[in-house]
């Protein structure tokens, strides 16, 4: 038996989707580079193509999946000397990917993180300096656990969790790939 009222119900989501589009980008990659490494005088593209073996090694050590084969990385240099790595990464948010950048020092410490694009319903506090500051100085010796060394933001737990695990994964990527270059 045909269910004709379905036709009317179908009209509603179609109209909703057709009428809505959004994108919230807070910083571009160059702006984030300047924010994390204001002392750098040049950023050299050092994009990484990861082999399957490298991805497996990262996943094993970080405890989280290395989703991307290609990772956008720049060498931050001052007077020709490496002062850190700048990495743009994406992690799963509730609806869309969250784009963020992390600056890592050559000895494997987080110099800072910046949120480039965040489009979720709740949790805009992750952009605050107070929350991002919790990552500064972290190394792979730290726990990277919500409510332990990184505060959770209610309504955005998945986002906080994935960024926290993401930053740890980038430190592992540095150790497994960048430091061996």
């Amino acid at each position: 038996m045909p269910i004709r009222p379905i036709h009317a119900l179908l009209m509603v989501p179609v109209a909703l989707v057709a009428g809505t589009a959004y994108a919230t980008e807070y910083l571009t990659a160059p702006q984030a580079q300047q924010a994390i490494f204001p002392d750098a005088d040049q950023f050299i593209d050092a994009t990484v193509e990861l082999s399957d073996a490298q991805r497996s090694a990262i996943e094993k050590q970080a405890g989280v999946r290395q989703r991307w084969k290609k990772q956008a990385v720049w060498r931050a240099e001052k007077a020709g000397q490496l002062i850190g790595w700048f990495i743009v990464d994406e992690v799963v948010g509730k609806h869309e990917f969250i784009t963020y950048a992390a600056g890592l020092t050559p000895d494997g410490r987080v110099r800072g993180i910046e949120i480039l694009a965040y489009r979720e319903t709740y949790g805009y506090q992750i952009r605050t300096t107070e929350w991002r500051q919790k990552f500064v100085g972290k190394t792979l010796a730290d726990a990277f656990k919500l409510d332990e060394d990184v505060p959770n933001i209610s309504g955005a737990t998945l986002s906080c969790q994935n960024i926290t695990k993401g930053v740890k994964r980038l430190l592992v990527l540095q150790q497994v790939v960048l430091n061996r270059r």
Partner: peptide, 24 residues
């Protein structure tokens, strides 16, 4: 059936015209 169909469409339209509001 048509009345129910219209009812669903009207309620849907009312939803669209409202500017707000649910736990996902």
């Amino acid at each position: 059936k048509n009345k129910i169909k219209v009812g669903a469409a009207v309620l849907g339209a009312l939803m669209l015209s409202a500017t707000s509001f649910a736990d996902e």
